[in-house]
């Protein structure tokens, strides 16, 4: 992995949250959501907290206390997927976000496995729907006449 750039979560239309050892990412622009389980969540957290791409494998090796040479291509490919899916974007080192150390350590699940993105599009219709609950326009006066039981 030779890239010396930093990455951060896309600033427009992406929200994410840590849930247990998983990071759920929602794209508000498309309605697609992603599940990043460990170590994908850990890679995301390290990048988001300012770890440059070229230091990623060594940081993971420290956290997993094992050599990860055999996984470097998988990790690089995964990082490429984060960018390709518009989850992360390039930034300068002072533009990254932050994760506290305890959270990062909580995302370490041994043994190390190839990081993957799980992508879900089953809720897209909810994001694209307008109005939210479609229903024919009716007068408020009509609604007032509704029976209550």
């Amino acid at each position: 992995m030779v890239q010396h750039t930093n990455l951060r979560a896309c600033q427009e239309g992406i929200i994410f949250e840590v849930i247990d050892q998983e990071i759920v990412v929602i794209s508000l622009a498309t309605g697609v959501y992603f599940s990043l389980k460990s170590p994908a969540s850990l890679v995301f957290a390290l990048l988001e907290s300012g770890c440059p791409q070229h230091e990623l494998v060594s940081r993971l090796e420290l956290l997993f206390d094992t050599k990860l040479d055999a996984h470097s291509n998988e990790i690089e490919s995964f990082v490429g997927s984060l960018v390709a899916e518009s989850i992360m974007e390039s930034c300068s080192s002072d533009q990254c976000g932050s994760f506290d150390l305890a959270t990062i350590e909580s995302l370490v699940v041994r043994p190390f496995q190839a990081p993957v993105i799980e992508k879900f599009d089953d809720m897209q219709d909810l994001f694209l729907l307008d109005p939210v609950h479609p229903i024919a326009q009716e007068s408020a006066r009509n609604a007032e006449d509704q029976i209550s039981r």
Binding site: I15, I19, D20, E22, I26, L28, M123, L126
Partner: peptide
Amino acid sequence: PTVNLIREVLVPTVAYLPGRE
């Protein structure tokens, strides 16, 4: 698992409530 519920609750809630997501 917790994550299943949160995924099924939080994604629709975020979808229905634009702004401050």
